[in-house]
């Protein structure tokens, strides 16, 4: 039986305008629509595929404010078995290192974890480092940026694919941390039955204290880095737009010469 923890995150929809709060430069969660990050659906899908190939249990783990419940329910409606939701005001403004410590502590609440699966990077913070940090904190191998995963017994093989490294074939033994890229699979749509079943699945809500962590280790004031300034970029303004009268290519060339670009 493969015991899998999948990390999910609620993020501002990339289709809406994303902002930082003016007061403390943290993510302005109210200004944009909140959705389950697309990459997490692929992480859930991969966990379900591994479970369905043998036996297993899939626990969804989410750190985020109360309204992140929507993201958790979506993952459960796809077919995950249960969920842990770490929600605590004290977490507001935590840096990535503290966030990883919280996630690692929450994973520690699940007994006998074989596999931790996450998206390779979120669409909001995008540091792409939480899976690596979990490997560091949990003392597990990292097999990240996977576009293919295979688990046989206690061995795991991953094809890592990144735009600048190409493909790297990785092997390790479980337990391990995996992150997936958007090329790995096509996530299933939750069925009506799945949506109904998700409402009854257990969601355990934990605070920082429940995890045995000190509030002095998390939050904005205890972050190891700080944002001193943040400003929206002035929007680009549209330049000249002309209809092609058969000389469009020449006109671009003339424009580029004028700009000393060719």
């Amino acid at each position: 039986m493969t015991n899998i923890v999948v990390l999910v995150k609620q993020v501002p929809d990339t289709y809406s305008e994303r902002k930082l709060a003016e007061t403390d430069h943290t993510l302005d969660r109210e200004s944009a629509d909140a959705v389950l990050d697309e990459i997490n659906e692929r992480a859930v899908e991969e966990a379900l595929k591994i479970k369905e190939a043998g036996e297993g249990e899939v626990t969804v783990l989410c750190v985020g404010p109360d309204r992140a419940t929507d993201a958790i329910r979506k993952a459960l409606s796809m077919g995950a078995d249960k969920a842990i939701h770490v929600s605590d005001e004290a977490l507001h403004g935590s840096d990535i290192l503290a966030t990883a410590k919280v996630i690692a502590a929450a994973i520690g609440k699940v007994e006998g974890v074989d596999l931790v699966i996450a998206g390779n990077e979120s669409s909001d913070g995008g540091a792409g480092a939480v899976p690596a940090l979990l490997a560091e904190l949990l003392g597990m191998p990292q097999l990240t940026y996977a576009h293919h995963v295979s688990v046989e017994g206690s061995a795991i093989k991953v094809d890592r694919e990144t735009a600048d490294e190409g493909i790297t074939h990785l092997e390790a033994n479980l337990p391990a941390v995996v992150s997936v890229t958007e090329k790995i699979n096509e996530p299933r749509y939750p069925s009506f039955k799945g949506i109904m079943a998700a409402k009854k699945k257990p969601v355990e809500t934990l605070t920082v204290a429940d995890l045995g962590l000190d509030a002095g280790e998390v939050g904005l004031d205890n972050a190891w880095s700080t944002v001193s300034e943040a400003a929206p970029k002035p929007p680009r303004t549209a330049g000249e737009k002309v209809e092609d009268d058969g000389d469009g290519g020449t006109k671009i060339a003339e424009y580029l010469v004028g700009q000393k670009l060719i």
């Binding site: 840096d95 990535i96 290192l97 990883a100 390779n120 995008g126 540091a127 792409g128 480092a129 899976p131 690596a132 940090l133 490997a135 560091e136 904190l137 990292q142 990240t144 940026y145 990144t162 600048d164 490294e165 972050a223 190891w224 880095s225 700080t226």
Partner: peptide, 20 residues
Amino acid sequence: PEGKEVSARLALRTGSGLLV
């Protein structure tokens, strides 16, 4: 991708602020 992973793990190890 690899550099961001290495730097995050290093920051945790050395107890330093991580700037991504």
